[in-house]
Design a protein around this nucleic acid. Structure first.
Lengths: 244, 244
DNA sequence: CAATAGAAAATTTTCGAAAGAAATCCAATC
DNA sequence: GATTGGATTTCTTTCGAAAATTTTCTATTG
């Protein structure tokens, strides 16, 4: 029965939530852009995407529209879509905006946060540490799967810090900026062995967490430094397109 | 020839820019939501919208998707779209987020701004003053057209202040938050004669501009106070839905 | 009389084809 | 030889109908 024309079940079978094909298109396109499977700047021809994902125009266009407002896709009126290009300027803007948003969110979170909030931070930090340790033990060949797991924990830790800020907008923006900056982080992580200047990321996280739990303004400074350090490393170790 | 089936010219005839029907749908829906022509919380049935705007599913859905990521429209997977509801909490969140964004943008703008920037601010202030004066002279019946013109100048003034911040993201966010908060401002403006506690908005603008031109940190404080004052008035004079 | 299952209606979502623009190519002209 | 004009091709955008899903209604049962 599978593959027969007219077989377009929508309901999710497994654990995931994508109830519509539009959502599927969005998630897959986003993943492929962030991971670099779709090259930056490359035009996204509808026919090719239809082929690639086995979906038709409508859900694809809806997904692209959504990705456009998240700055992952660029488009001009009657000239179609393309993967948003990468550039130093964009990377820096995303980083600084992220610092602005998360600094405020962290301050508010420290003001509002309760015991559960603290517990969640400690738990997320622990999970991240375990994953990092596991990774370093099996070092050398870092599988893509591990990198994905690592990234997920990293995301969860940073999100736990600001989770109690009380502003849905700030949380949304932080999420969006996390994804945007991930485009620059990921390719840097893959071939990172080369120019790594002995950075102890785990220690930085510990420092941020400790300051956060004692409600110190230092936490905000450490967080900003953490992000700027990453940005600097990315800027240095990325091969930027000619005129950007 | 007009109206004949198959007559779907896309190219804009007049001065405007909407090159696609998707763009038309976006602009009209947005205007109708902001102005309150479409009630907050009301379901947006595709068939009804198709009727109302004379467009078909595809462009409407694309526009709704875009409006959803701008928080003007709400949607659930297979249950369709609705106008995003209004609430005290959302209004406050939008206001505080706007203050966060624009404060930073204003500081950067004061750092980067050149002569042209200053000239543009003065010009925008002047245009706003003229419009306000014209309006107060013809007071009593304030036409909707005048209100629209007034709002445009108001927007232009606030935008001129932060125009040179150098961050496309901050400018986009400011624009988005301007539109979001306009939903709360507009209905309040229409019937404002009642509870107005003798507020001199023009003076507030002048104060912000003066401080900005002399590159004083006061500008940021005045701007925040300006927005919070507006939020307070809105909160007091709005009839909020029962449980929000 | 409330609760439930099943059919009917309403609505959203998706598709494939058709219409409309832009980009490309090619020949004719200056 | 460069340039302009027009046809051809490629691609985006839009439509209307078909499929899938949710909601509503109704009859039946405990």
């Amino acid at each position: 029965m599978a593959g027969v024309a007219g077989d377009r079940r929508i309901v999710s079978e497994g654990a995931g939530e994508p109830a519509t094909l539009s959502e599927v298109a969005y998630q897959r396109l986003r993943a492929d852009i962030v991971s670099g499977a779709l090259d930056a700047g490359k035009p996204l021809r509808l026919e090719a995407l239809k082929q690639r994902y086995g979906l038709s125009f409508s859900p694809l266009r809806e997904a692209l529209m959504r990705l456009q407002s998240e700055r992952l896709v660029f488009s001009t009126a009657l000239r179609g879509f393309s993967v948003a290009p990468l550039s130093r300027a964009e990377m820096k803007d995303a980083t600084e905006t992220r610092i602005l948003i998360e600094s405020d969110a962290l301050r508010r979170s420290m003001r509002n946060g309760d015991d559960d909030w603290e517990a969640a931070i400690v738990a997320a930090f622990h999970a991240l540490s375990l994953q990092a340790e596991r990774q370093s033990r099996l070092s050398g060949e870092v599988g893509a799967v591990d990198m994905h797991a690592m990234d997920e924990r990293h995301y969860q830790f940073h999100r736990a810090l600001i989770a109690h800020c009380g502003s849905p907008r700030l949380l949304d923006l932080a999420d969006q900026l996390y994804v945007e900056t991930q485009r620059y982080r990921l390719p840097c992580l893959v071939g990172r062995v080369a120019g790594t200047p002995a950075r102890d990321v785990a220690a930085e996280h510990q420092q941020i967490m400790d300051a956060t739990l004692r409600r110190s303004e230092d936490a905000v400074r450490y967080l900003a430094e953490h992000y700027r350090r990453t940005a600097d490393i990315i800027e240095a170790s990325t091969v930027w397109p000619s005129s950007a």
